[in-house]
Design a protein around this nucleic acid. Structure first.
Lengths: 208, 208
DNA sequence: TGAAAAACAGGACGAACGTCCTGATTTGAA
DNA sequence: TTCAAATCAGGACGTTCGTCCTGTTTTTCA
């Protein structure tokens, strides 16, 4: 360090940038390899952060995981599920499209690491109340977005007597479970099968 | 040890018994706390087994987990799902009863530790092919049992055009996902909601 | 410009972790 | 009864874990 105290432009701190890189690396590691399976040393190596820097931003590993849930996982659910469904023509069409899109994506990349929320939920929700609160809140927002879309369809005259909240819970559960099976079989087939079954259910909620 | 080499009845080896106690303790720990969250030292303490005894029966932790999957998890799925469904009047009635029974059980014990198969599947299936094979096989047998029951109903004259295999996959996925949501919310509500939705679907597969 | 705070460097720390090793005891077959 | 194999005792081994600590540098603000 002494031989090059000043680089060409002068080195600068980038706290937000480093924090973001840490959270992104942790998101990738936690949702694919798992929370316990990932060591903080792994993250230091991947990001180039030192122990001091890491401890400054995230005193404990748990703090980092909470940030991953709030910043990354919530955002991914929003992007991949809520927005597509809310902007689709109908709830049914939106749900069908999301399933199909994710199935295609999994087949393209060849391996299935599962639903990020589901992966972390099953590993962290059980023993720690802080994790559970955050995870449950994300599940709730996810479900409510779908329920809202169904309510919109109903107001537009869809011919069904379904309960929006209950059906939304049903959709989220089916998706989560299908992803678990997809992970176990390393195949998008369960996802496609479940999408087909759900589509079958919804296709006669005709909107006039 | 030297002061009491011979106890009252004379100590005896019990290899099968010790093996069984180890697998049962590991099953309880792995499916509630998690595989990585459980140390082999924990299991030694809980069962009273020594390092040598443990290493003799299960050279590695992975061997123990494979035994847990094959001996315990497969058996639990058989007991709690396959047998009740196969012996029910109809597939629909069997599925409804299993959901209701498990929901009641969760509410009685106050906490939700999730579906044993699902818990281990999400933690172990991704990176290890040996685990994945065993887990996928259990999922398959589970699905096939339900599909068989639906086929039986169809032969008995049920009025539906459903594909047995696809619908069975759908049921397993919905259950797994509902249990994940139940774990996150520490409530049986998602299970009850999904059961209601599934029942609604199946109630007009009238068997004459 | 000076001082306090924030951001980061780099390693020390004890406490686990999973596995393996040597030897003692028990068991079953000869 | 003898002896090899199976079963178990108990601890050592090196590694890795998450956290904390003492400094140094950079940034902020008055």
């Amino acid at each position: 360090m002494a031989d090059q105290a000043q680089r060409t432009t002068g080195r600068k701190n980038d706290p937000e940038g480093l924090r973001r890189r840490l959270v992104e690396a942790a998101y990738a590691a936690f949702t694919t390899r798992g929370y316990r399976a990932t060591s903080v040393h792994d993250l230091k190596r991947e990001t180039g952060a030192t122990g001091g820097a890491l401890a400054h931003h995230f005193p404990t590993k748990k703090d980092l995981a909470l940030a991953v849930l709030q910043d990354q996982v919530a955002e991914i659910v929003e992007e991949t599920w809520m927005r597509p469904v809310l902007t689709a023509a109908t709830a049914g069409e939106g749900i069908r499209a999301v399933f199909a899109g994710i199935a295609a994506e999994l087949e393209a990349q060849g391996s299935v690491s599962g639903c990020p929320l589901n992966n972390l939920a099953l590993e962290l929700a059980r023993d720690d109340a802080d994790f559970r609160r955050v995870i449950d809140a994300i599940f709730l927002r996810w479900r409510d977005a779908i329920a809202d879309k169904i309510r919109t369809d109903l107001r537009a005259g869809a011919a069904t007597t379904i309960d929006p909240e209950a059906f939304a819970t049903f959709v989220v559960a089916t998706y989560s479970g299908a992803m678990a099976m997809a992970k176990a079989s390393q195949s998008a087939a369960p996802l496609r099968t479940c999408a087909e079954q759900l589509t079958r259910l919804m296709r006669d909620w005709r909107v006039p």
